[in-house]
Design a protein around this nucleic acid. Structure first.
Lengths: 311, 311
DNA sequence: ATGCATTGTCCATGGGTGTGCACAGTGAAA
DNA sequence: TTTCACTGTGCACACCCATGGACAATGCAT
């Protein structure tokens, strides 16, 4: 950085011309006169041109100085305007927001949140990237990710959205075919639809009670939404995250009344660890923290299918 | 100068975006990576906005960063262009040049110099301020003054143009009326036209000889050109600077053949003492140093009156 | 997998720079 | 004239900041 010339000196120069004197400029910028003097001198030095002819009392801007001043003033005005725009956008959400989420969440929680978000912040263009793979946030320019399970991305910070609660669900018709009411141990003998390969025994809780449940999956699917559809059709009982089951409305219910499956983790947000998080990100998280619990409690109106075009 | 934000950081930011990485930017600006990193961090701090999301390997410009970058890049381009224009104008004369000179010189030497100057540097607009008063150079935005006699302006530098030589001139007709050839002592008995109030005895020289001449002015005028006209008309003999007499062409000649008046000082330029004198000023002085001696030696063509409109 | 090169950041240190003071020069007021 | 307020600048010093080395993290090549 040997002889890169000091842009701040340009600011000083412009202020001098605007103020009409070094001292006035110094006052308006709240810096000592001597600094102003030296900055101007160094600018003239690095330009190799006299900008301001000065006696102790009078000032007059050189021909070169006048030309330079006109350009600089305009340029600095643009720069200041840019700064103002940015700091304005800092507080109130606007522009672009890119989100990624795994398919399960993208089909369930996410549409509700987005629906509320775009309603509240119409100026923001939202882009959603639905993928189960681990998206490289900074590499793909993603502002915010929603992930399930433990997070181990370095340089990122997380924030818990919800506890990942789940249960074994079944349709009313299916339950009528069984000898209700079922108990946890009965689940090992019903038609059970398992998830993916990582479907071992799980725990069910009721108050302080906790029992381990072994199941014999007659069917294994690696997609919760497909499982949900099967459960709705009465194919069998299936372990489902509550937020997935919820999208089926009242057509399916917990198979074992009064019990629920033990939580297996959290759903959380993940975004770049920065001193100054994006206003868009913060706003989106705020909306999500407000909307999702309502949705899970069933207090959220469930519109028909207008969010399907976002998937 | 508490929290005035660092414009140089903006330059660094722009270079980072252009280069695609902090390290690349550091290399291209020849400053250590650590400085680049800190500059960027401080810019984000003072803006209160994250501009660049960065992992150790990948970079991605924030929404806010993109908007800011576009404006800044344009603005800095303008600034750089301004700098280029100014430093270009440094070497080759252009723009505006304001000169002041006393009337005597403005009517004699100056037109010839200006004529040559505008012919050589057509891009420069020349403005001439003819006045015998002491013009405040910086106060009135004058780039260059021509003065006769000692200079005692502080903060200014001078450069000698010519030795202020003079002589006693008379017309051919007048000399015929006298009993030529005249000797220096004869001057006390001719009709002598004196200058202003400061017209005491003067010295005349011939080789190593020097004699003091006392005159009895029958007529005193405080304007050399008027004196010259009177001499041309044959009213008497008059002490005239050579450069004034020269404008009368061959119609007047030294009254005492072989002798001349002793020099009484210099004509010099006066301009602001600055590290970086204006290219215009330098060019003008160069032209003057070249043209004036030619004129005084009579080798310069004397056009009719086309320089009159410059007075 | 495992080096290897490269990236961005943290940290102690020295050089550069902004600061306060003093001073010459100037204009307005008395 | 003399005084006075104020201008812009030279100078010595303290302090901040750029510096370079070290380090964790990461992608590429083998």
């Amino acid at each position: 950085m040997d002889n890169a010339f000091d842009l701040n000196a340009v600011v000083v120069f412009v202020r001098i011309v605007e103020s009409g004197s070094l001292s006035a400029a110094a006052r308006s910028m709240k810096m000592p006169k001597t600094t102003v003097s030296k900055r101007l001198a160094s600018l003239e030095e690095s330009l190799g041109v006299a900008l301001i002819a000065r006696t102790t009392r009078k000032l007059s801007v050189t021909e070169a100085g006048r030309a330079y001043f006109a350009h600089c003033q305009e340029s600095l005005r643009l720069l200041e305007q840019a700064r103002a725009e940015v700091t304005a956008a800092r507080s109130h959400p606007s522009g672009h927001l890119k989100i990624t989420a795994p398919v399960d969440i993208a089909h369930t929680l996410l549409p509700r949140v987005i629906h509320a978000f775009v309603g509240r912040h119409p100026g923001v263009r939202v882009e959603v990237l639905v993928a189960n793979r681990l998206v490289d946030l900074v590499g793909e320019g993603v502002d915010l990710a929603i992930r399930a399970g433990p997070m181990r991305d370095s340089g990122m910070v997380g924030r818990k959205l919800i506890e990942l609660t789940a249960n074994v669900y079944a349709s009313h018709a299916y339950l009528r075919r069984c000898k209700a009411p079922l108990q946890p141990k009965d689940l090992s003998s019903v038609e059970f639809i398992g998830y993916g390969g990582a479907n071992g025994p799980f725990h069910m809780v009721k108050g302080r009670s906790s029992v381990k449940v072994d199941v014999n999956p007659t069917l294994v699917v690696d997609d919760f939404e497909t499982i949900k559809e099967l459960v709705v059709l009465g194919t069998g009982a299936g372990w489902l995250p509550d937020f997935v089951a919820k999208t089926a409305g009242a057509s399916i219910v917990p198979a074992v009344r009064g019990w629920r499956a033990k939580s297996v983790g959290q759903v959380h947000f993940l975004y770049a660890k920065q001193r100054h998080p994006s206003a868009n990100v913060k706003a989106f998280i705020d909306v999500a923290m407000e909307v999702v619990p309502l949705f899970l409690k069933g207090e959220l109106a469930m519109p028909g299918g207008d969010e399907r075009n976002l998937g």
